[in-house]
Simulated scan of single mutants.
Amino acid sequence: MNAQLVKVLEVIKLAEKLKVEMRHSWLSNGRQESVAEHTWRMSLMGILIEPYLPQKVDLLKMLKMIIIHDLVEAEAGDIPTFDTMNSAELKEQKVKNEAKAIENIRDMLGDDLGIELYDLWFEFETKETYEAKVANALDKLEVQIQHNEADISTWLEIEHQMTFMMDKHVAFDPVLQQFKGLIEVEGEKKLHKAGIDVENIKANLMK
């Protein structure tokens, strides 16, 4: 047992890197956000939204997925979605790096727990189960909530467009669609307040 606990401690130490791995998101006080902070609020969102979902969800399984999904970034680092949107090469490299990282974590634990983490990570990535779909939707929604809370000067131009690109992540669930709508309205108000031509953004997205 002691030998296995040593391995568990090593993974916990690895996870500390997520406290210092910065994301391209900024907080309301002007500080850059860490990966760990993003994951924590995703977990809270999962707990708070679960009672209102129209389908039964295995909350423990979903929370495990949420907490594990960015653990690979302790090794692979964080690459923003907008960096991979127009680069198939970078997207492929990101997939390879993260897959290698979860393999290393599995092997670091070296038992059934390692296999469970490995399987849950891939379940999140493939988005085939209801829990994985909800977790992925919350991942995208939390990002937009954080953008809405940050100063507009921290937004890249592509993030103006991404405010209105969340539909595909929530299309499977009516409650998440409504929740997305609330978040999108806040983002749109923020863009309007900054004098950004929202109608032009929407028109370009429909082309």
Rank of each mutant, 00 (worst) to 15 (best):
M1H: 10
M1S: 10
M1G: 11
N2L: 03
Q4C: 06
L5E: 01
V6C: 06
K7W: 00
K7H: 06
L9R: 09
K13Y: 02
L14H: 05
L14P: 00
A15L: 12
E16C: 06
L18E: 08
L18T: 15
L18V: 08
L18M: 12
V20H: 11
R23H: 12
R23S: 10
R23P: 01
R23L: 14
S25I: 09
W26D: 01
L27G: 13
L27E: 10
S28W: 09
N29C: 00
G30E: 03
Q32K: 09
E33S: 14
V35A: 11
A36K: 02
A36N: 00
E37S: 09
T39I: 15
M42A: 07
S43Q: 01
L44E: 15
L48D: 13
I49P: 01
Y52E: 09
Y52S: 10
L53M: 08
D58M: 08
D58H: 02
D58K: 00
L60F: 12
K61W: 07
M62I: 04
K64C: 01
I66V: 15
I66M: 05
H69K: 01
D70N: 13
D70L: 05
L71E: 05
L71M: 10
L71G: 08
E73Y: 12
G77K: 01
D78A: 15
D78R: 12
D78V: 11
I79H: 07
T81G: 08
D83L: 14
T84M: 07
T84Y: 11
M85W: 12
M85L: 15
N86E: 11
E89H: 13
V95P: 03
V95K: 14
E98Q: 14
A99E: 12
A99T: 07
A101G: 11
A101C: 09
I102R: 04
E103K: 14
E103F: 14
E103Y: 14
N104D: 14
N104K: 15
I105R: 10
R106K: 15
D107H: 11
M108I: 04
I115N: 06
E116H: 07
L117R: 04
E123V: 00
E128I: 00
Y130F: 11
E131Q: 00
A132Q: 03
A132N: 07
N136L: 10
N136P: 05
L138Y: 10
D139N: 15
K140V: 03
K140E: 06
L141A: 04
E142P: 06
V143E: 12
I145L: 10
H147K: 01
N148G: 13
E149W: 07
A150W: 01
D151I: 03
S153V: 04
S153D: 15
T154V: 01
W155P: 03
E157Y: 13
E157H: 12
E157W: 08
E159P: 03
E159H: 04
H160E: 08
Q161S: 15
M162F: 14
M165W: 12
A171M: 13
D173S: 09
D173C: 13
V175K: 09
V175P: 06
L176Q: 09
I183S: 10
I183P: 15
I183L: 07
E186R: 15
E186N: 13
G187S: 02
G187E: 07
E188C: 02
L191P: 13
H192A: 09
H192C: 11
A194S: 05
A194C: 04
A194I: 05
A194H: 03
G195A: 01
V198L: 00
V198Q: 01
N200C: 04
K202M: 02
A203G: 00
N204M: 07
K207S: 05
